[in-house]
């Protein structure tokens, strides 16, 4: 009770409630004597304070008639139209006055709904507007048909490549052979022509020419031998290369099959 009433130690009431006059120390006595004339007066006041406390504690408190509450609640309902409270409650809870605009739950819900609407619009309606020239289009993305076409093109290209490779494998050797044959025939022709000249002229100069021609023939022959060697060598290389390419093709095909 003392705490409820916030009784200060500077109040006489505190000493009246908690102390006997003869047990007061000098400081307490000084405070009490400022207001109380004698010990008798102190005791009389003490009796009243203690008695009043007991009186009000023991006193039977009156209980209100329950009919009053019923009547008041009816009055309250009349004052507040039905449902108004809940509408008010919803509004006030969504848009409380004490909060800032962006902190109001209502505003946050509106923001959330707007963002969801925007996402839905972009995600679902975006596809139908692919042909809309006003919108930016992602051309990097290809359809399934396009990718299938691309694959078939690649296959065709590969087939062509194979064909070309097959052709290229044999072409150089044929050319080389033809060239070699040409060179060889030319040399042969030269060789054939020269004896004719020796026979016709029969001079030292012709002899010398013949000697030179023999040397040239020999040189030609060695060249021809070299060419033969190279040709054979080239053929060998070409066959090796064609073999390797064939293996690679098989490997590629194998990959596609997988």
């Amino acid at each position: 009770m003392m705490e409820d009433r916030n009784i200060s130690k500077m109040d006489v009431e505190f000493y009246l409630l908690n102390r006997e006059y003869d047990k007061l120390n000098s400081d307490e006595l000084a405070i009490v004597n400022e207001h109380v004339e004698s010990e008798q007066e102190f005791n009389e006041m003490k009796a009243v304070v203690m008695g009043a406390g007991n009186l009000f504690k023991e006193e039977k408190e009156l209980a209100p008639n329950p009919a009053i509450k019923v009547a008041l609640l009816k009055e309250f309902d009349k004052q507040q139209p039905a449902g108004a409270y809940w509408l008010n409650g919803i509004f006030t809870s969504l848009f409380p006055k004490e909060k800032k605009l962006f902190q109001k739950p209502g505003m946050q819900l509106i923001g959330l709904a707007a963002s969801v609407l925007l996402i839905v619009t972009i995600a679902f309606n975006g596809k139908t507007d692919m042909n809309n020239s006003k919108l930016a289009q992602n051309k990097g993305v290809k359809s399934e048909e396009e990718t299938v076409e691309e694959h078939s093109k690649l296959d065709r290209d590969e087939a062509n490549e194979e064909k070309n490779l097959e052709k290229n494998d044999f072409q150089p050797t044929v050319e080389l052979i033809e060239k070699d044959i040409e060179v060889a025939t030319l040399n042969e022709v030269e060789i054939e022509e020269k004896p004719e000249s020796v026979e016709n002229k029969g001079t030292t100069a012709d002899f010398m020419y013949d000697a030179q021609s023999i040397e040239s023939v020999e040189a030609d022959l060695s060249i021809a031998a070299d060419l033969d060697y190279r040709r054979n060598d080239n053929n060998l290389h070409a066959s090796e290369e064609s073999f390797k390419k064939g293996v690679l093709k098989d490997q590629r095909k194998g990959c596609y099959i997988r």
């Binding site: 008798q40 009796a47 009243v48």
Partner: peptide, 23 residues
């Protein structure tokens, strides 16, 4: 308020002095 309480206690104490412990 303090003065009223003190005055009331003093007055009631005087009027009810026969109930004080000393009395």
């Amino acid at each position: 308020v303090k003065s009223r309480i003190f005055y009331t206690l003093k007055k009631l104490g005087k009027n009810l002095k026969e109930f004080s412990p000393v009395a």
